[in-house]
């Protein structure tokens, strides 16, 4: 992800050999994600925040909520935006400067998963129709890299949104005026969970770590919502999936997603 580090061929061979025996390099079974730990409200100055560790991948997300002008064609909806950035301290190969295509894809896939699940009910974020709406910005920063940033960023943003407290604004004299002391949780419809699977040879593995990520032939990220429906998907890498594999991935994403959703709910309750 962070640009391909030069993984030695030996490690790639070893990963594949282990997979032939149904094992993974870090001892997990194929459909087992890494340990997920979520610390909410890590940044008290943000309206909501979370520091998430997925194995050795670490992401911090801060949510800022502030009045904004609506987009011209959607004056009856608030604004939701999710970004992701790889900080240069996350890996030796990350460089400063404008984001590279893989990072732009990361930000867009993270945004899409949450947006398309309709997690945030943006119709409830209108201060004055066509004039002023509430903007919700979830900014992810990757501080340590060990593969699978898609899921780590998605969990960080979702956890931060779940514990966010939104201020309230009233429309007075043609401008939004902050109502002191009136804070409420964001209008939440569902909890999206993204699950990324890698394909190495003919094997499908859940939540690839950094070494596995570098050895992957293809990957797919599937986001499911609280009802167990699939709401967003992104395939990547330069190999293909068979129809069977894609169906299998859909099932895995929903099954693994259900367990992770429980962790996000627990983090939400602990953080409120």
């Amino acid at each position: 992800m962070a640009s391909h580090s030069v993984i030695d061929e030996l490690k790639k061979t070893q990963i594949l050999e282990l997979l032939e025996q149904g094992k993974r390099i870090d001892g997990r079974v194929l459909d087992e994600p890494r340990e997920l730990s979520i610390e909410t409200n890590a940044i008290p100055k943000a309206n909501g925040s979370a520091r998430v560790r997925l194995g050795d991948t670490e992401v911090i997300c801060g949510v800022k909520i502030q009045p904004d002008r609506p987009f011209p064609d959607t004056g009856d909806k608030g604004i939701f935006m999710c970004t992701a950035e790889l900080l240069p301290l996350s890996h030796p190969t990350v460089e400063t400067g404008p984001p590279q295509p893989p990072v732009i894809e990361l930000a867009r896939v993270t945004d899409r998963g949450i947006r398309e699940s309709h997690m945030i009910d943006v119709t409830k974020l209108v201060i004055e129709k066509d004039k002023s709406v509430v903007g919700v910005f979830a900014d992810n920063v990757v501080v340590d890299y060990d593969g699978n940033l898609f899921d780590a960023c998605s969990y960080a943003a979702t956890a931060a949104l779940l514990v966010s407290k939104s201020p309230k604004w009233n429309w007075i004299d043609d401008s939004p005026v902050l109502a002191e002391g009136e804070e409420s949780p964001l209008p939440i419809n569902t909890i999206p969970v993204s699950v990324t699977m890698g394909k190495i040879g003919n094997h499908i593995i859940v939540d690839p770590n950094g070494d596995e990520w570098d050895s992957m032939d293809a990957r797919v990220t599937i986001t499911s919502n609280s009802d167990g429906n699939i709401c967003a998907l992104q395939k990547g890498g330069d190999e293909g999936f068979t129809l069977e594999e894609i169906n299998q991935c859909g099932e895995i994403a929903i099954r693994v997603g259900t367990k992770i959703r429980e962790k996000l709910k627990a983090a939400q309750q602990a953080g409120q």
């Binding site: 100055k45 925040s49 801060g62 800022k64 502030q66 970004t83 400063t96 910005f137 900014d139």
Partner: peptide, 16 residues
Amino acid sequence: VRYHMEPFSVGERKNP
């Protein structure tokens, strides 16, 4: 040396 502030580090969201 690069000193950088996160968008959520200050009161109003900072341009990254």
